[in-house]
Nucleic acid binder design. Structure first.
Lengths: 365, 365
DNA sequence: GGAAAAATCGCAATCGGTTGCATGTTGCTC
DNA sequence: GAGCAACATGCAACCGATTGCGATTTTTCC
């Protein structure tokens, strides 16, 4: 930037406008305000931050100028001298997924209430991207970094990724919605196990015994926990676990659709299926309809997440809800508390609620 | 921040770790690198930015240290002296809406490729929020601000909002996906009129004449354009426009559902309905099913946006697609070009493609 | 009324970079 | 080998805030 002629704090000229073309106004600084108010920049800074004594008369004089010029302090400069930028960096696996969108929103709202700003980035689940963005946030000196889904959940690539995160943790607190072993970061996550329990209990109460589980990769922590619980609960009831009923895959429509088609290839089909999430459930619904059966009369379908998808399918889905506002708030609060060295609980799990809608019913004979 | 003892650029100590507790590492700066490399900070800066001559030997010496310490230049400091932060601020109406999510993602990907970072904020359509966030971005000195949907589309509150935006435009380029009259900001938007034309032609080709339009507020620019085209095309065909067939409302599931129920209250029902977007279409589908009719046999349903929703409904929706990657790229490129004073086209419209799926068919008798 | 305590407020350093200017160095040309 | 352009590199100012220190003014209290 070219140095401005004269010393700091030149006079504030009239807003620039030149023969039709918009001209950038000179950005005004505390020096400008200070000069016009006849005080020192320090004083302006003090009325800005508010935590110091300034004589009433001067305070008002300065405040008026601030209002008059619609002055906003430069966050970069502030961050530079403060070491606190009051900003959080979020890396989300895929913001198009309604689950992440909901969490992000809640998180962002909470952060905002606490006076923090949020930067978002989508990793699209590519590791390089994720690491790259974490670096970018580090450059920007965000006070904390939040990882929504993505690699934090993946037990396989976990090792090398954890390595990187571990490195980052040494300079910036990191909170993840998954589990990263032996890494000093905060974890705030859904109690996947409890959610599965609710779903299974619900199905049992309807007399289901042949229950399938479709979608999700077992190397993802939350999915693994779900499977563990699924398996355990069948055993508790003395029901033989049928390996063919567990079809792993992804977390989208197609995975649900393909998975259910696989199920239909079996000689004995289940009376109920648990989808890994609402998204997959929609694919499952489609497959069932295409096979000429109906939900829940022939087959019950339940899923996780209670995103808005579960209300717009036909039939509406029975799912588990997480109170997104609460979830998001916990994430934001944890991140901020960590940023402010208030040592938050390093591991928080949030509960779930069963939401019964139309897609589940008594087991067919 | 407490001043560090000694002069600038103390020696780099070993990574801090203390009886189990993680300790923040000292953040290293170009001064540290400079000292250890035995050169001046200017030189380090020069190898960092790359656009200056540095003797090969020194360049390598510095580069090695940068790698060794995994040094990342402080973006705040850089932004302070540069006046370019290479960051964009995005204010989205509601990121949970798959349309905005898709646009945002595309936009973000494009910006990233161009070396820019993105900050996101959700206005949830509340004006104060929107203005407040714009201010926040201004403080952060983002090089440009992008407004996705929200108030930029609203013709009513437009006046006062435009006032504010006009103010912002004087310091930061603004690009909107709508239309803001008499405001010096860039507009990149869907050709809503063309999209409607494709939908109507498609329906006409199936012999439909009694066509309803459900959802959307006429005081929103894009919706108004759609309605204008809808109306004009009926007239072209010499079809009398039935006022009761135009049911305005919101842009969500409920609006579609309620709107369609209203239609069913009429004595003569339409043979086809155009939903304001995929979201509303899902509600319409529900209403039709509940009335014991089927799509598209009894009624055809078409909509706008081609979000992933249109593929997971039963039946899958016929909609208009926008090539989101292209759309997002245009937005990002416009914003960046403006930021770099390269005067981009102030008004760009992106075309649409009809995607025929299962929800439309011949008019029933 | 006078002294100590408290409130004001400016100076100047600092955060971590970038860059114009000035001062060498090198390399080329003839 | 002289002359000159291009290259290298350091110094110091600057971006726009914050803040400790110390000087000055007010208040408060006996």
């Amino acid at each position: 930037m070219k140095p401005v002629a004269g010393t700091r704090g030149a006079l504030i000229g009239p807003a620039g406008q030149e023969n039709g073309y918009v001209m950038k106004d000179k950005t005004i600084t505390i020096y400008d305000i200070a000069q016009e108010a006849g005080v020192s920049p320090s004083t302006v800074s003090r009325v800005l931050t508010g935590n110091a004594h300034v004589r009433r008369e001067k305070r008002e004089r300065v405040q008026n100028l601030i209002d008059k010029y619609n002055f906003v302090p430069n966050a970069l400069a502030k961050g530079l001298s403060d070491t606190m930028t009051r900003s959080l960096g979020v890396v989300a696996a895929d913001i198009r997924n309604p689950f992440y969108a909901a969490v992000f929103m809640a998180c962002e709202q909470a952060a905002e209430r606490l006076g923090y700003t949020i930067g978002l980035f989508n990793s699209l689940n590519r590791v390089e991207n994720e690491e790259e963005q974490i670096e970018k946030f580090r450059q920007q000196k965000t006070d904390a970094i939040i990882l929504l889904g993505g690699r934090v959940d993946d037990l396989v690539t976990n090792t090398q990724f954890a390595e990187h995160v571990r490195d980052v943790c040494r300079t910036t607190p990191v909170v993840v919605t998954g589990k990263l072993d032996r890494t000093p970061c905060y974890s705030v996550r859904i109690d996947a196990s409890a959610a599965m329990r609710q779903l299974m209990d619900h199905l049992f109460s309807f007399g289901h015994e042949r229950i399938a589980m479709i979608g999700g990769r077992l190397d993802v922590t939350s999915t693994y926990e779900k499977y563990q619980t699924y398996s355990a609960m069948l055993h508790e009831r003395g029901i033989r676990e049928n390996g063919e009923y567990v079809v792993s895959g992804g977390y989208d429509y197609q995975s649900g659709y393909d998975g259910m088609n696989r199920i239909f290839a079996l000689r004995e089909r289940p009376t109920a299926v648990v989808a890994i999430n609402d998204f997959a459930a929609t694919g499952i619904l489609r497959s069932i309809i295409e096979h000429g059966l109906s939900v829940p009369d022939d087959i019950s379908v339940v899923s996780f997440d209670n995103t808005y998808l579960s209300e717009l399918t036909i039939p509406k889905l029975t799912t588990t809800d997480y109170d997104y506002d609460h979830f998001g708030r916990l994430i934001a609060e944890t991140a901020i508390a960590a940023a402010e060295h208030r040592e938050p609980d390093p591991e928080v799990r949030v509960g779930t609620t069963l939401v019964v809608r139309e897609s589940s019913g008594p087991a067919s004979v």
